[in-house]
């Protein structure tokens, strides 16, 4: 990965020097162990700050719409910047979605595809370690050795620490890119089976409803899921509107449910299953068990996987006259 990191630094510096990019979005080191922080490099000299390691977990596409947003305070808008983004599979898929939804001008975006080994989630590691805080982590091959506050070292197989979304991810390379660094994984097999979703799907309607309510009753309506989602770029979320008021006061659970059902359904045919919402949730609400249904149905009903093909119209804003009618109630 060091090698990739060097190339990222070099590429970023070059893009900035040659004015092929005004901003490079990537990761820099964090002060916390097992973390990397998104960073914005605008100066070739700063490219050194860029890192590439197993903790580059965030979906960087979240920052793209902001780069191209109009400035409401000026009349004469500056020409849109050229933005380069270091893209794992998920960042790349989200970027494709944003391009399709006109939030990012394709010609102003440089997608630098990098190979993603599947990122490690510090929260998962902490859970496995217990209460003693992690102070450092060392990787060698597929083994990760974590040292905690007490000085104890624990060995993990890399797979155990994989972020949830990375476990199920079958396409770890950005599907659309302008440059590539290193050898991109071909994708295909997920790193781990998706048991939780399958188990949930097999439950009875009532059990599913109970679990759904149980999960959502943890929600404190902090909106972190929404803030973390690259698709939630709306200027004013439906849930924040008052005429009409779609989600009530937020007091009763039904209001919480209506917010989440509404927000999740807005991801139908758009969600790239990056896991940002789940990671962002401070209460550990298992949103993916519900959102993944939409990903799966888009594929099954319309043969559509979000984030792959810039040309293809998202499934809910087009139609086919032969689309399925199998959900229609026939009275007789």
């Amino acid at each position: 990965m060091k090698d990739i990191q060097e190339q990222i630094i070099k590429t970023a510096a070059q893009l900035l020097t040659e004015a092929k990019a005004d901003i490079v979005i990537g990761f820099s080191d964090s002060s916390l162990p097992m973390r990397a922080t998104p960073c914005f490099i605008t100066n070739a000299d700063d490219a050194q700050q860029l890192v590439w390691n197993s903790y580059c977990l965030n979906n960087l596409a979240i920052y793209l719409p902001e780069c191209f947003a109009l400035d409401p305070h000026v009349k004469e808008q500056k020409p849109p910047p050229k933005v380069a983004v270091i893209a794992k599979g998920c960042d790349g898929r989200s970027a494709v979605g944003l391009i399709k939804e006109l939030q990012v001008p394709r010609e102003n975006l440089v997608i630098i595809a990098v190979p993603c080994p599947g990122m490690l989630d510090a929260t998962i590691a902490q859970r496995l370690i217990g209460t003693s805080e992690i102070v450092s982590a060392e990787e060698s091959g597929d083994t990760v050795i974590i040292k905690d506050q007490t000085g104890k070292e624990t060995k993990f197989d890399r797979k155990e620490l994989l972020a949830e979304a990375c476990r199920f991810c079958t396409h770890r390379a950005a599907p659309v890119s302008d440059m590539t660094i290193g050898e991109l994984p071909k994708g295909g097999e997920a790193l781990a089976p998706d048991e939780r979703f399958e188990e949930f799907s097999k439950k009875s309607t009532e059990e599913r409803w109970d679990q759904f309510c149980r999960e959502l009753s943890k929600c404190i309506l902090c909106n972190a899921c929404r803030s973390a989602c690259p698709n939630c770029y709306c200027k004013v979320c439906f849930a924040d509107q008052t005429r009409p008021n779609w989600t009530g006061t937020g007091g009763p659970l039904r209001d919480v449910i209506s917010f989440h059902l509404g927000r999740m359904f807005h991801q139908a045919g758009r969600c790239v299953d990056c896991g940002a919402c789940v990671r962002a949730c401070p209460m550990g609400v298992d949103l993916r068990t519900f959102t993944y249904k939409l990903v799966k149905d888009a594929k099954e009903l319309f043969d559509y996987t979000a984030g792959f093909d810039i040309e293809r119209v998202p499934p809910l804003i087009e139609f086919n006259v032969d689309d399925s009618d199998n959900f229609i109630t026939e009275p007789e």
Binding site: P65, E101, L102, Q103, C234, K235, V236, Q241, I317, E318
Partner: peptide, 10 residues
């Protein structure tokens, strides 16, 4: 409120 995503156009 409009983010100019183009869904309405489609």
């Amino acid at each position: 409120c409009c983010a100019a995503c183009g869904a309405c156009v489609a």
